[in-house]
Design a protein around this nucleic acid. Sequence first.
DNA 1: AAAAAAG
Length: 689
Amino acid sequence: MFGAVRRFGTAHALRAVVPRSTHVRWTPQLFKWQPSSTLSPGLVRSFQTFPALREATAAAAAEAEAETGVKETSEQEIITEFADLQTSGLISPSLIRNITHPSRMGLKTMTDVQSQTINQMLQGVDVLAQAKTGTGKTLAFLIPTMQNILNDPTFVQTRKTGRGRTGASCADIRALIISPTRELAEQIAAEAMKVAANTGLIVQTAVGGTQKSFGLKKMQREGCHLLVGTPGRLKDIFSDPRSGVAAPGLNTLILDEADRLLDDGFSQEIRELQDLFPDPYKVDRQTLMLSATVPREVMRMVDRTMKPDYKFVKTIREDEAPTHMRVPQKAVFMQGYENILPTILDLAKEYKARQSEDPSLRPFKAIIYANATSEVSLYSSVFEELRVSPEDRRRPLGRMAMIEIHSRLTQAGRTAAANNFRRATEAILFSSDVTARGMDFPDVTHVLQVGVPRDRVTYVHRLGRTARANKTGEGWIFLTEGERQHYHKLLNGIPIEEDRTSFPVASYDMTEGLSGEPDSSLAQATRAMAMLPPATRETAWKSQFGTLIPTHGDRRACVAAMNRNAVHGYCLPEPPAISARVAQNLGISRVRDLNVEGPRRNFDDDRRPRSGFGRDSNRGGFGRDSGRGFSRNSDRGSDRGSDRGRRPGGFNDRSPRGRYNNFVDRDSGFGGRSREFKPTRRSTFDDDF
DNA sequence: AAAAAAG
């Protein structure tokens, strides 16, 4: 019913907004794309580096031209300015004023996603929008969603009545926005509040890590029309009948970062959440999904929950070419992980020095991504140590702000970190993947990634934190030789150039000792590391181990590399001992140089002989000589009695490959009898991801 | 031992 009203209200002006470039219509039954307009010349130009995609789009354009006989829509028919949305009667003056007024958001021209989807979304049709990171997706769904609420005759504009009261109810939520991270929810809510200012629309946030009762009281007091939140807390609130919060007339459901929300970890929760909303057959509900990639999970959810006449809008334009095809990216293969902090420090120092000479360079504002929270925290502490050090010569980056963000901080700490980095002109943010998606930090000049990210999409999203809003940026990834294969496989096709020359510190062999120069990055980073509590360093080392094993081809080499890193990077007297159980879970319990704590668990089952294997066979690798040459120990180690099981004549020594495979299967769970086989999923429409 | 997200 509401949908009908909305459609009627805006129908007259719909033709005014004409999609500018590819507007692809998805027909679920046919599984076929039907391009409804042709491509701009700029679009084709942007694919010069991407032959396959170029051919595909050119073919689509030709097909569309043959069908319609129209070559290119004239520019005049396209609404690209926010102001024109008002003059055409599509969007209310108050919303447009909030967006365009210099003292407000100060925006003038719409991005491609905006000009292509606002129209569709205003009609009340379901939309699946695919657009690259940093192209203004948030505003694209906020504007029509709010306008649709305002258009609704049952929406009663409310007014402030003092003491924060508005007279609005929290039991009549009209729109719900779901985000995969708390900070992204907060960011969306902040933007929504700017757009909604003085319209009577009330925006609230519901995320975990905050006091539930506090948020509820606020909603009860102020009311709520548009709620932004994370899945867990939203589910909590809507399944609690005493919360007083309800959405019996929910008209719009938005899944931001839909691919993430519908992947393994989240999909169940999203489905349960959807069950808490009114039946869409009784209350007309529009579903909007926004995503940079459209994998199968998303299509499955689209088929299940969206109206059959939904639109699939895909935007590609020259100035919105995917970040990872546009931004210069370099890979540095380091001597070992012990070189990481000196290398990053060198990069920052070098840029800062250049920037102070060259006013055209923006201040250093970098994000450093690591794969484990404790690693993030440790790196941050090292740089903080360099910052607060009382000795000036040990303050290589001056007073540059060092900020850390990851799930192990309190929510207040996370929120503050995100806001501080947003506002900072010169700073380093040490981050886990909490900020990888959707976060909008203005003017990030560098994105640095330590180690191979967990998947390809994560790499691209992290990189997407830089080079936003027509700014430039650069991406770096720091790796070791052991990861090379995995790196190539995962990021194949992304134009990353290997850099062998920029950072001598990256290839310095730190087992040689640190020579002279106290102001070298090597010495500075190492000194700062040594200042931190050993327990912190041990924890981080163990976590890093956990992330590295799956990305390393050779587990023995990985253990050797991490042993070196423990001593020369983490400045520990010897590699921390890992419990036998953990070692087994990691699939490295039989790697000779591993420092295993306590008695070894015997992993042989009764179908196999128990020749001197297992117990104690790998201990004693770290003694007085622990500071160097762990890999060499293994060669000597074969002479020890405790290693009998590995000597020639042992049951498995003759076919090392077979033994290794057997071992890997059991310990890692891949292909083992107790775990199910999990095939790698490829995105269905991940074009350039 | 490995992000995130409900306590």
